Computed example of a mutant assay.
Amino acid sequence: MTTNISRPPFDPELEVALAVVTKQLPPTITPDMIPQLREATPFSVTPDEMLRQAGISRTDFRFPGHEGASLEASVLTREGRSGSGPGVLYVHGGGMISGDRWVGLPHVVPWVLDLDATVVTIEYRLAPEYPDPHPVEDCYGALVWATENAAALGIDPDRLIIAGPSAGGGLAAGAALLARDRGGPALAGQALLYPMLDDRDATVSTTQIDGVGVWDRTSNITGWSALLGDRRGTDDVSIYAAPARAVDLAGLPPTFIDCGTAEVFRDEDVAYASALWAAGVQAELHVWPGGFHGCDLMAPQAAITQAMYAARNEWVGRILSH
């Protein structure tokens, strides 16, 4: 059911793209649609062809996830790169219920080519088959593995960040909290791209984005319910599953957060940035006017999304150059 509450308008250029996107991807995802969502193919060319065209080498590894599960990771480097350099652990999006390690490939290509970074893009197990804490613990396991094997992977462990969009941003934030609380790997930064942080469905923006855009209020409830089951919205949810619940964010690394004004996650992302500042953490926040969820991947040539990429890549480059 759609809402009558007013919302910020979509950027006109993005609204044209959104009309095309919603013919293939409806704004509302219900639990019965999860199999269909997983079968969708977002690529016009295969990931391997995209990597080949970009001049990026791929090496596959396996890492230990939650309870010792063997999971896949791909290590991406510029062809001909040797020695050690900055690294990015990349956690894909998909609402906790879909996606794989290739979904956000356009995010990481500039980091490999322009910043000479090694990008480790990982698989984690999806809900509802693997509910919390499987996904975030899988991601933390990947972080520990990447740090322990940094030399072999060509990563300077002092210049390693974690990054991810949407659900991947939420899982990256959760893994960073786990690293802080367990005395785990020290991260140089976390790049949270329109992250999925709050299971409680209580913000203005979740009410505004209902039956419109991409990943609306009902979709968000579908994703969180798959991850948390009956615990969603109760007091029995950890800060690692839903980082917006964290009371104290002190001790986290420098953080980048972006989102659009016309997406469900707007208010929780702004609140997380504010909580980071309150805890004394350096954080950079961008709220893009008229942006819908995932617009950077769905309309990469639009002026707003070009600006999103530029701001994000500038921050990543600054952090990795230290």
Rank of each mutant, 00 (worst) to 15 (best):
P131G: 08
A242T: 00
L227W: 05
A244C: 02
F265R: 05
G233Q: 01
G174H: 05
W277D: 04
R58Y: 04
V16D: 15
D236T: 04
V204M: 06
D296F: 10
D181K: 06
L171C: 01
V136H: 03
A151Q: 13
P133D: 08
A173T: 03
T22M: 13
I221D: 01
A19G: 09
A173Q: 04
G233M: 02
V264I: 08
D138E: 06
S70K: 15
G168M: 11
G317P: 00
T147S: 13
S219A: 10
P64N: 12
I155R: 11
L252K: 00
Q301H: 03
L193G: 05
T30W: 00
G68H: 10
L227R: 00
P27V: 11
H134D: 14
R266A: 04
G168L: 07
D158W: 02
A302Q: 08
D230Q: 11
M33W: 01
R266Y: 00
H134N: 12
E129K: 09
L143V: 09
V91S: 09
V204N: 04
L14P: 10
S82R: 12
D269F: 08
P31G: 13
A40Q: 13
Q53H: 13
V16I: 15
C295L: 14
T30G: 01
V21A: 13
D201C: 08
D235H: 07
V119E: 02
I155S: 10
N313W: 00
R81S: 15
I97H: 01
E148W: 06
A191H: 10
T261W: 00
D60I: 01
S225H: 08
R266L: 07
E67G: 06
D248L: 02
A283T: 14
Y90L: 13
R182S: 14
P12T: 08
L113G: 09
T206E: 09
T30V: 12
V20W: 06
S225V: 00
S57N: 06
A226C: 07
R231W: 04
L105Y: 09
A73W: 05
R266P: 00
V88F: 10
D158V: 12
W224N: 02
D235R: 12
P9F: 08
I161D: 02
Y309W: 11
A278G: 10
T305S: 14
A127Y: 09
I162W: 11
R101L: 04
G99Y: 14
A69M: 12
